[in-house]
């Protein structure tokens, strides 16, 4: 498991290659890269700021990844999530899953992304032509999380 918060831009392809390098025990490498869009809900985005809680955000993402790894029987997962300021076109998040067969890795990436959208302690603030606004979780993200029957912390 490799969980990291990145205050600077990262190269998803290089990170994925490094994670899978030398692994002869796995037959599948699945990755997802989320990228900062230049428009959200029809509004232009000049800059995105990702707020986080140092020490807690990493711990929670690691907990979510471990939960997904166990549930999907996916032996290894890597997550890199940007924090701080970023601009459209830059990668925000990378999830890579390694598994013996493809189904487990596909499922792990999809499920962990659903988790990250609603349960990772991160807060987005967009700056556009109409000023700054904090982003709330989208209704479809909340619905996907509920559909995934993700275990609650309660």
């Amino acid at each position: 498991m490799d969980i990291r918060l990145a205050p600077e831009p990262f190269d998803p392809q290089a990170e994925e290659a490094a994670f899978a390098a030398g692994r002869r025990d796995i037959g599948a490498v699945v990755s997802f890269t989320g990228v900062c869009r230049e428009r959200t809900d029809g509004e232009g985005v000049g800059e995105l700021f990702l707020d986080h809680y140092p020490g807690f955000t990493e711990k929670e993402i690691a907990r979510l990844a471990a939960d997904v790894a166990a549930r999907c029987q996916c032996p290894d997962i890597k997550v890199i999530h940007r924090v701080g300021r970023l601009t459209p076109g830059e990668p925000i998040v990378l999830v890579v899953a390694l598994s013996e067969h493809r189904d487990a890795a596909f499922e792990a990436v999809r499920l962990l992304m659903d988790y990250l959208k609603t349960d990772a302690p991160l807060w987005k603030r967009e700056t556009g032509p109409n000023g700054e606004r904090w982003i709330e979780p989208r209704a479809d993200d909340i619905a996907r999380r509920a559909a995934a029957e993700i275990t609650d912390r309660t």
Partner: peptide, 10 residues
């Protein structure tokens, strides 16, 4: 003690 509003990562 930290107060966390609804999260919006990913």
């Amino acid at each position: 003690v930290a107060f966390l509003p609804p999260m919006s990562g990913g």
